[in-house]
Design a binder for these strands. Structure first.
Lengths: 217, 217
DNA sequence: AGAATAAGTGGACCGTGGTCCGTTTAGGTG
DNA sequence: CACCTAAACGGACCACGGTCCACTTATTCT
C-alpha cells in the first residue's frame, strides 16, 4: 500500500468554493523523507485497520493518528484533510481496476474491439464501486473534489479514447463524462440501494447507452 | 436582494415514493405553528441577506440564528442541518424554473413537441444553475442527499415523461438520470470554470445527446 | 375561561475537522 | 564528525456543526 497521494492542496478559505486547483496531475511523486514515508504507510495501515472495525463515518482523524502512533498534525500534513486520507486509501484499490482495463485480458483490456471494451467497462466499474461504495461516498465531501482525483481523469481519457476508436459521433470527452456519470457511485447507490433497482437493469441501460452513443455515424 | 421566501411549500409531486431516509427537512410543509412559521421566514431572510455579503462557505449557522434573532437550536430544529437550510433557500428560487418548464410558454413549456422541449430543457437548466452554483455546491455535503431533494425528482419525472412522449427507446427513467447527470452543477462548473470550456460546447453536446437518446427507434 | 398537551425555543455543551507554531530530526555538506 | 537547513512532528488550540433538555408558548379541548 505504498502508493502515492497528493500531499495536500492549499486549503482556501476567504472567497467561497474551491479555486481552480492546478489539478495535481500525478499524485505526490515528490519523494518524502524517510520518516515521513514510514509514517505515511503507518497511517494508511492504521486507517485501513480501523476501517474494518467501524463504518467510514466513524473514522476520526484523531483515532487514526493515535492508532498509528503519531500526532494529529502529521495526518493533516500528509493528507491535507479527511477526504484526502480516504482518497489515498481508495487510490490503492483502484489500481487493480485500472490494470484490468488498461492492460488486462479482453474484453475489458486491449485485444477486443473498442465497442466491446466499452460494453465491458460499465459492468466492471459497477461491481468495483459497489464494493467500495462506503469509502467512496464518505470521501465525497466537496462535489468538485472528484474531478481532481487522478483516477477519474484516467477513466475519462480511457473512455474518450475508446469512443474515438469506435468512431462515435459527437464530443468524445463530453460523451465520456456522460457515460461515467451514469455509473457514478452516488447515482448507482441511490438507484440500487435506496430505490431497490436490480443491478441488471443498470447494466442493461449501460449497454443501451453505449450502443446509442458509441455507434458509428 | 433579500427576497422574502414563501413560508413553506408543497409542490405537487407525481409519483411520490420512497422514504427510507431521515425525512428531508425541506418537505415538511405540514402546517407549522404560527411562531414557527414566522421564525422560518425570518431565518430564510436572514440567511439570504447574509449570503449577499459573503460567500456561502462563510455562512455559519450561528450567524444566521443571530441575524434572525433566534437561538441556534431553532435553526437546526427547522432545517435539520446546514445543507437543509441551503436547500430550502434554493428551493424557493427553483420554483421559477419549474414554472417555466411545467406551464410556461414553448419551447420549454407545453405546446411544443416533446423533442423540442427536451432540447430547450438543457440550456434552460444550464443557465439557471450557473447563477446558483455557489449555493448549490455548498449544499452538496452528502452525495446521496441530492437524490432526496424534491426538485430533482420533479426534473427526473419531467424528462422521463418527455422521453416517453418522444417514443425514445430504452429505460426512460435511467435515460433521464443520464441526461440530467450531464447538466449537473458540479460537472458543469468543473468543465466551464475549472477547465475553461465554453458553455456553447456543452449546449451543443446536450443537443447531440438528446438527438441520440431521444430519437424514435 | 382554564387545563392539558404538543410544538417550539435557546443556549450550554460536546466532538471533530482543521490550524498553528515551537520543537525535533533526517540527511546533505565540508 | 560537527554543523546546518528544510522537512517533519505533535499536541494545544480554535471554530463550527450538531445535540440535549429544561423551559416557554400556541393551540385544542371541555
Amino acid at each position: 500500500m505504498t502508493d502515492s497521494v497528493a500531499p495536500t492542496s492549499k486549503l482556501p478559505e476567504p472567497g467561497e468554493e474551491r479555486r481552480n486547483l492546478p489539478l495535481a496531475p500525478t499524485d505526490e511523486p515528490h519523494q518524502l523523507r524517510a520518516d515521513a514515508a514510514r509514517n505515511r504507510t503507518l497511517l494508511l495501515d492504521a486507517a485501513s485497520r480501523l476501517l474494518s472495525g467501524c463504518g467510514a463515518a466513524d473514522l476520526t482523524m484523531e483515532s487514526v493518528a493515535a492508532a498509528a502512533g503519531v500526532g494529529k498534525g502529521t495526518v493533516f500534513r500528509r493528507f491535507g484533510d479527511r477526504a484526502g486520507l480516504l482518497i489515498a486509501l481508495l487510490d490503492h484499490r483502484e489500481k487493480q481496476l485500472q490494470a484490468a482495463f488498461l492492460s488486462g485480458p479482453p474484453p475489458l483490456g486491449p485485444g477486443a474491439s473498442a465497442a466491446e471494451r466499452l460494453h465491458a467497462f460499465g459492468p466492471a466499474v459497477l461491481r468495483h464501486e459497489r464494493d467500495q461504495h462506503a469509502l467512496i461516498l464518505a470521501s465525497r465531501t466537496d462535489p468538485l473534489r472528484n474531478y481532481a482525483v487522478p483516477a477519474l481523469h484516467l477513466r475519462i481519457n480511457h473512455i474518450a479514447m475508446l469512443l474515438r476508436q469506435a468512431n462515435a459521433t459527437g464530443d468524445p470527452e463530453l460523451l465520456a463524462h456522460t457515460l461515467l456519470g451514469f455509473i457514478d457511485t452516488a447515482l448507482v447507490h441511490h438507484l440500487t440501494v435506496e430505490r431497490g433497482m436490480p443491478l441488471e437493469r443498470l447494466e442493461e441501460a449501460w449497454h443501451h447507452l453505449v450502443t446509442r452513443l458509441g455507434a458509428t455515424a
